[in-house]
């Protein structure tokens, strides 16, 4: 299944790598933004099937952005992609409404597996 995906990461390097991997996996990148605030502003414009969200970003971090997007759009599907390995951050991300958590550095296979898991469990076709 081809998904419309929005990438949220302040690193152009990671955004470009993610974009290449997701495109190879057959998905469309509808928008890339570098802050949580921009993600919040742009969610409604693009209504992506899935968001990949970094945590450490300027202006608004990824946990806060996830919380805010989920408040206004409970149907939003968000996977956190971050270097934070601490348990508390995973708990905070899940509590904010994220459906998956990928630790950097990561491989394409891990990305594919996590997206498939999220879409099987929470995707529109699973309702």
């Amino acid at each position: 299944m081809s998904l419309n995906i929005m990438i949220v990461d302040d690193s152009m390097l990671i955004a470009k790598k993610l974009s290449a991997m997701l495109t190879e996996l057959g998905h469309n990148i509808v928008h890339i933004c570098g802050t949580g605030k921009k993600a919040l502003e742009n969610y409604e414009k693009y209504l992506p099937d899935l968001i990949t969200m970094d945590i450490t970003m300027p202006e608004m971090d990824g946990i806060e952005a996830t919380k805010n997007i989920k408040t206004s759009h409970p149907e939003a599907l968000i996977v956190i992609i971050t270097s934070h390995g601490q348990e508390q951050m995973v708990i905070d991300a899940i509590n904010a409404g994220a459906k998956g958590y990928i630790l950097k550095p990561f491989k394409k296979e891990k990305l594919e597996e996590t997206i498939n898991m999220i879409m099987t469990k929470y995707g529109k076709s699973s309702c």
Partner: peptide
Amino acid sequence: LNIIVGNATSDFQTKGHAIMISP
């Protein structure tokens, strides 16, 4: 640096407190 420090936070985490790192 982000990967090294972010990954390392799991080594010195304290229960119940998220360690924040700056961009």
